[in-house]
Design a protein around this nucleic acid. Structure first.
Lengths: 179, 179
DNA sequence: CCTATTTAGTTCTAATAAGAACCAAATATA
DNA sequence: TATATTTGGTTCTTATTAGAACTAAATAGG
């Protein structure tokens, strides 16, 4: 089979659709005077009585360097608080404040209604098809990485660094370790 | 029908799959000592003998404020150059330098092969299904915006601002213009 | 022809993104 | 028990993101 001659349109479509959705979701977040990552965090914390940074990063796919900054800004807005872990001196628990909880209770029905109306013309089968095709692609991506398992964010990030190093070294002709 | 009680898993899947793909693509960009947006610009410019910022922004979905900064950095790397437009005093043409063109010729086959191998287990029908389900969602998002047409980036951005203003005003009980 | 409006690209601001380096705490190993 | 390694969160750096405000140029309208 001859080498491919153009960028797969389906991947362009993936990126465009994702961007369109994020812009759409950001509009509603904006009415709550939140950014999208901040809203995502509120929706994640609202279902828990506090969460470690590690866990919160895993659930929201925000890397830890970035997460520290976002939590700082949300703490400054009075939406969350940090509580030292009783069981791990390194850890802190992030919890919604009373104001954060109030915002969560307001935001949830609004946001769910807002995003679910995208699917008002969809059947359950339509939704299942879209979801399974996306999952299949995500699995293909992980398979192409050479590791079929899905990893927590920082492991993925750490692993990306390793793969990048291997790619770069391989390009330069160096001996590489086991892949 | 009762109000939805959870965030649609399919949208979480969209965001995760997109992020997985961007991480995957970034790995290859990294071997070329480029960021993903920079690689995207090189792949876009490589097929043209120069392009205005406006056109480049439309094709890459990068807003113009951001694009100026990226082109500055690429110019500093010696990959692109700016040429004043002969027909519009406001415009500049962005064109790959010789080094940029060389990198383009190296990058294209590598990158196309790299991303196309995600689909080695896919049939043409599989790809078409994924693409059409994504396109349908994207159209649903635009429909939910209240405007079924797809717009160039800045128009979309400008339009988002208008919608945000209307949403915000509506929340506050003000009289709003026609929607 | 003159005035008003729109547009192309730049500058600026705030937020986010990714990831390396760091330090202290936890865990693993000998 | 002591040493080595890993981990949680922070700080720092670089890049990107979005969008408002700006200036000069182009276009529209009277």
């Amino acid at each position: 089979m001859s080498p491919p001659t153009e960028f797969p349109r389906v991947l362009s479509e993936l990126v465009r659709t994702n961007q369109a959705f994020l812009n759409y979701a950001a509009i509603h977040a904006y009415t709550l005077e939140l950014t999208l990552p901040q809203l995502d965090i509120i929706l994640t914390l609202g279902h828990a009585f506090g969460m470690t940074f590690k866990r919160l990063g895993e659930k929201t796919l925000i890397t830890k360097g970035t997460l520290t900054g976002i939590i700082n800004r949300m703490e400054h807005k009075g939406l969350v608080q940090r509580i030292a872990s009783k069981t791990d001196g390194r850890s802190q628990i992030v919890r919604l404040t009373t104001a954060g909880q109030t915002l969560f209770e307001q935001a949830v029905p609004e946001h769910l209604d807002y995003v679910n109306q995208l699917f008002k013309e969809y059947s359950l089968e339509d939704i299942a098809t879209l979801e399974s095709t996306l999952l299949r692609l995500r699995k293909a991506i992980f398979a192409a990485h050479g590791d079929g398992s899905e990893k927590p964010v920082d492991e993925i990030a750490g692993w990306c660094t390793q793969v990048k190093a291997v790619c770069k070294n391989y390009q330069e002709g160096d001996v590489v370790g086991p892949c």
